[in-house]
Nucleic acid binder design. Structure first.
Length: 513
RNA sequence: GAGCCCGUAGCUCAGCUGGUAGAGCAUUCGACUUUUAAUCGAAGUGUCAUGGGUUCGAAUCCCAUCGGGCUCACCA
């Protein structure tokens, strides 16, 4: 392929889209009415899209400062506030101005404003951004108010907001036009603000404990570190296919080999080309950390402390309502082996089952769907997923998974069929995954070979061999504990959000056209 | 990818045993002027998702398509 026949960027914007946009705008009565007001503002010498505004206070700060101001009293304190008009009463005399912190009422009256200012106020609509300067007072009805001396238009809105009382409830519009959702729904703002607090809390927690934040590639030549179908893309200049990463694990371990730090972490996106559901988005945020000279027990205590810290940062408490359940993230969390959990729930002790065939039969007798190529560990996992996982509500570390399903994990020091791994399940959903990392290069190579064998037997999700990763291990990876936390799911739980789309600002959607 | 449900005005929703497309908010005009879902009076507002079909007649019944939600499968 030469430079001339490289695939061009796709033509996502047909030429007539602009014409269609113009036509639809011309037919929009709301837009036309507001354009008329915009022109009238210009005739008054007002720039409806100015450059800046000197704000002296947020609404919430004024509310706090003047909390004790009695009804009917006026201060001599001038403030400058700005935000979006969310309500207009008495023909513009009362305006509710919302900023990121909250609401403040604005009073516009001819006794306090110049005549041309009164003209300008008549041209304001719901949704416009304005700045106001004036004295703080509390009305006789008890509402804290800025007595407007001057109103500055900061951005004329051309489109109307959704209805003020019922707001915007249509899920499709809320996800596609998140800006409208954020304007209208305080709980959506809270959720995404808490998301930011949670991530900031995790980041500062880890940095305080000596973890180094790193970035590893999004574009992989081998999609390793997890079992999932990858997105495939193409690099033109190198003329090669690349995968969007499904996990950062193998690169982070390379950094531990290199001794960049004994403790590294990355908070970043993973991409998996799989189904979309209330708990799955094709791109999702993962926190992975690796801690040299530590094992999965060290990781467990670190994780519990970290999530406690994040919960308190978001909600001020370790307790949170998730659906109908109150969940408490206070450490220590329950710890049960996967085999024991399965035994408790089904009466079947897979420790007593030796062969893959017997394990598959046991699973089938329990009514669990079995394809026929499962090994012992996959059968155990299938039973656990079907019978146990959804029943675990309070944070529970599911300990010591089968070796068969854990190709990057060190063999359990007490049981050769198991590995040192735990997944934390909360509210029936897997939240974390942690290992005593496999550090033996020969063992790792054999595990990859086993995965390739499974792939040959029809398991197209088995992990791919990564020779350079084996080479890195051959230079010596110290004993290392590793952890992955699904950040979106953690945010879902800490914000009681029923869908992953609620905690991702712009979830993946099909285009409308 | 499969099953079930949904798509009506800018928004929230009625209308669905087939018979002239509705309300509230929003908008426009007017009144009022210390309101706070302000109030009062008047007016305008539709590709009933799209395309077919049945019928004298379809928002309504049938089929297909598009978009969304839930459940399942895959997965975290």
């Amino acid at each position: 392929m030469t430079a001339n026949d490289r695939p061009e960027a796709p033509a996502t914007q047909p030429r007539d889209e602009a014409a269609a946009f113009r036509a639809s705008n011309a037919a929009n009565e709301f837009r036309q009415a507001r354009l008329g007001k915009l022109e009238a503002m210009k005739r008054l010498g007002v720039n409806p899209y100015p450059y800046r505004f000197d704000r002296t206070a947020l609404a919430a700060a004024i509310e706090q400062e003047y909390a004790a101001l009695p009804a009917g009293e006026t201060t001599n304190a001038t403030v400058r506030v700005c935000g979006r008009i969310r309500a207009i009463r008495n023909s513009g005399m009362f305006i509710d101005l919302h900023d990121a912190s909250g609401k403040i009422q604005v009073f516009c009256h001819k006794d306090f404003m110049a005549p041309e200012q009164i003209e300008l106020v008549k041209l304001l609509d719901l949704g416009d951004m304005i700045g106001v300067s004036g004295l703080v007072r509390r009305t006789p009805r008890g509402e804290l108010t800025v007595n407007a001396a001057e109103v500055t238009v900061l951005s004329k809105a051309l489109l109307p907001l959704p209805e003020k009382y019922h707001g915007l409830s249509d899920l499709e519009t809320r996800y596609r036009q998140r800006y409208l959702d954020l304007i209208m729904n305080p709980e959506s703002r809270d959720t995404l603000r808490k998301r930011s607090l949670i991530i900031a809390a995790i980041r500062s927690f880890l940095i305080e404990r000596g973890f180094l934040e790193v970035e590893t590639p999004m574009l992989h030549t081998i999609a390793g570190g997890a079992t999932a179908r990858p997105f495939i893309t193409h690099h033109n200049a190198l003329d090669m296919d690349l995968y969007l990463r499904i996990a950062p694990e193998l690169h982070l371990k390379r950094l531990i080999v290199g001794g960049l730090s004994d403790k590294v972490f990355e908070i970043n996106r993973n991409f998996r080309n799989e189904g979309v559901s209330p708990r799955h988005n094709p791109e999702f945020t993962m926190m992975e950390l690796y801690w040299a000279f530590a094992d999965y027990n060290d990781i467990r205590t670190l994780l519990e402390e970290m999530v406690e810290h994040a919960a308190i940062a978001a909600n001020g408490t370790t307790k949170v309502m998730v659906g109908d359940n109150e969940i408490d993230f206070a450490a220590p969390w329950a710890r049960r082996s996967m085999i024991d959990l399965v035994k408790d729930k089904t009466g079947v002790d897979f420790n007593e089952i030796q062969t893959a065939e017997a394990a598959r039969d046991a699973a089938k007798r329990l009514g669990v769907k079995i394809e026929g190529h499962e090994n012992w560990g996959q059968a155990v996992e299938a039973v656990f997923g079907d019978k146990v996982e959804h029943t675990l509500i309070q944070p529970t570390h599911v300990m010591d998974h089968p070796l068969d399903i854990s190709p990057l994990t060190k063999v359990h020091r007490d049981n050769p069929r198991l590995v040192e791994r735990f997944e934390t399940v909360v509210n029936g959903i897997e939240l974390t995954n942690a290992y005593s990392e496999l550090t033996d290069p020969q063992d790792q190579f054999e595990r990859f070979e086993g995965q390739m064998k499974q792939r040959d037997q029809g398991d197209d999700e088995a992990q791919q061999l990564d020779i350079d990763f084996i080479t890195a291990l051959e230079y010596g990876l110290p004993p290392t504990g590793g952890l992955g936390v699904g950040i979106d799911r953690l945010v879902m739980m800490l914000t009681n959000s029923p869908a992953i789309r609620d905690v991702i600002a712009f979830p993946t959607m099909r285009p409308t056209a």
